[in-house]
Design a protein around this nucleic acid. Structure first.
Length: 482
RNA sequence: GCCUCAGUAGCUCAGCAGGUUAGAGCGGCGGACUGUUAAUCCGUAGGUCGUAGGUUCGAGCCCUACCUGAGGCGCCA
């Protein structure tokens, strides 16, 4: 049977991890540096660490040596030897070199030097070859894997909720319309409005803003479910924390109340961080150093109080602070910035906490992640369970330093009459969500769940300042390149 | 959507009170170098100063509009 190329290949991560001196290997990857016509730093994406390849250039034609340039792709066959240099334990002395793909340095846009994130964002097809982005995307993978492992190990079922949805009452923001209608010639009703009954699905449809409502269907049958999929928001949000297309994890659990929900959220987030700490220590160490280097040029007060690794270890080893919305308002009203009128927005029971308020609670007061619960009902969604005080709902937000809200969730309203009243108050069309109401009408149960913004989590773990740099192909207002 | 800042060589930036031929480092190219670690050393090319108008004897610098990017806010995850 004919063997493929991969049968020849030794993965660099495995070679660095386990090797025998004198063994002959063939490695394949991209050139990160070619120093002194002699030393190639080769990276194949399997690890942040490069393999040093030593070239005796008398043994190779000059035409081949000339093609060993930054980010050219090559295969090298040679013997593993202890390195005489200081930077690495082993190296491979090249016996044969094959050029898979040259990269003309006169036209190749990337350079072996510091480049800004903004520049690299314009080269999203090449930026993954850099140390920073390869580390970020290896960690992103590990975090995603940890999500599935966490839930699978705890008996949750992975539920695939629809990407295209027919309900526009999810209440989580502006939606992207999905249609096959001819936009130049839209079918109209007699009233002049668009006749969506002629569209592909026989009704108006959109990209989902949340899988929660369908997740509840799963929870009230399978007990414990979670979704992990893309989510779309057509909001014109221009910040370092928002994407038009992002990935969200939404567990939904029967026989859970708000306290179970908070505990799950805390355990879950800590588990992901712990998993990455255990499995990607070298990538995290690189990112940690990267941030420290960048901060050397900053003023002392602009630097982070803790390094990246220190922060992650701190989060996994300390309990999150838990307070009610009412307690948060009291703390804020007694705070120094409030008394000195440093807050731009008022702090009043009934209005939502602003970013500046959340930041004070998390970064200045508690200096750790904070879970705020029991928000006023008027500022929260219709499906959140009304508390006995008739003023608040069993909602919870998990707030993280630097990135703000990572998780938003609640215990869901399981009482049909209360839910109907809330929907009426908030002008949610009950007819459209008939199936959601029947979940309560037939075999309803107390249940709860939340949504975790995956990119915000990856942002926190990697310390990246802009959410556009933790997703391979960011979708933001005015940008859908790649 | 709002506010602020920025756009000068491939990249990162400098530039003066508005005054001849616009500078540096890195990268590229040519050369030297057989133990380098973002290698080093010597040499060299490279610019319609975001776009379009305007003010001025004269604009990279001042004014207007637009485009692009960043930061902040709102919306949220």
């Amino acid at each position: 049977m004919q063997q493929g190329i991969d049968s020849r290949r030794t993965v660099i991560a495995k070679l660095l991890d386990h090797h025998e001196i004198g063994q002959t290997v063939e490695v394949m990857g991209w050139v990160r540096a070619f120093r002194g016509n002699q030393f190639i730093a080769l990276n194949d994406g399997s690890t942040i660490n490069n393999l040093q390849v030593v070239v005796d250039y008398d043994r190779f034609p000059e035409s081949l040596i000339k093609q060993i340039t930054f980010h050219a792709c090559i295969a090298v066959k040679g013997k593993v030897a202890p390195s005489k240099g200081a930077g690495q334990a082993i190296e491979v002395s090249a016996e044969s070199i094959e050029i898979f793909g040259a990269a003309n340095p006169e036209t190749y846009p990337l350079q072996p030097k510091h480049q800004t994130m903004e520049f690299l964002r314009e080269k999203a097809h090449l930026r993954m070859r850099t140390n920073t982005f390869s580390a970020v995307f290896r960690i992103r993978h590990a975090a995603a894997f940890a999500v599935h492992k966490f839930y699978n190990d705890r008996g949750y079922y992975y539920l695939h909720t629809p990407i295209i949805t027919g309900s526009d009452a999810e209440g989580a923001g502006e939606m992207f319309r999905v249609t096959t209608l001819d936009l130049q010639n839209l079918p109209k009703q007699e009233t002049g409005s668009i006749d969506w009954s002629q569209d592909f699905f026989g009704k108006a449809t959109n990209l989902t803003v949340s899988g929660q409502l369908q997740g509840e269907i799963g929870a009230l049958a399978l007990g414990k479910v979670y979704t992990f999929g893309p989510t779309f928001r057509a909001e014109n949000s221009n910040t370092s924390r928002h994407l038009a297309e992002f990935w969200m994890i939404e567990p939904e659990v029967a026989f859970f109340d708000i306290y179970d929900n908070m505990q799950l959220a805390e355990d879950f987030v800590k588990y992901i961080i712990k998993y990455v700490l255990e499995h990607h220590a070298d990538d995290l160490a690189f990112l940690d150093q990267r941030i420290k280097d960048a901060e050397k040029q900053m003023k002392a007060e602009e630097r982070r109080e803790m390094g990246l690794l220190e922060t992650l270890n701190f989060v996994v080893s300390n309990d999150f602070e838990r307070i009610t919305y009412t307690e948060a308002v009291e703390l804020l009203r007694n705070s120094t910035p409030y008394k000195k009128k440093k807050f731009k927005f008022p702090v009043e029971w009934g209005s939502d906490l602003q970013a500046e308020h959340e930041r004070w609670l998390v970064e200045k007061h508690f200096k750790k992640p904070v879970i705020v619960r029991n928000y006023p009902k008027d500022i929260k969604a219709f499906y959140m369970r009304l508390n006995d005080d008739n003023k608040t709902v069993a909602a919870m937000d998990v707030l993280f330093p630097g990135i703000g809200e990572v998780i938003g969730g609640s215990q869901r309203e399981e009482r049909t009459d209360v839910l109907l009243q809330r929907m009426a108050d908030m002008h949610i069309p009950a007819e459209e969500l008939w199936w959601y109401l029947e979940l309560r009408k037939f075999g309803g149960a107390p249940h709860a769940g939340f949504g975790l913004g995956f990119e915000r989590m990856v942002q926190f773990i990697t310390g990246m300042g802009n959410i556009r740099d933790v997703i391979a192909f960011p979708r933001t207002p005015g940008n859908a390149e790649f």
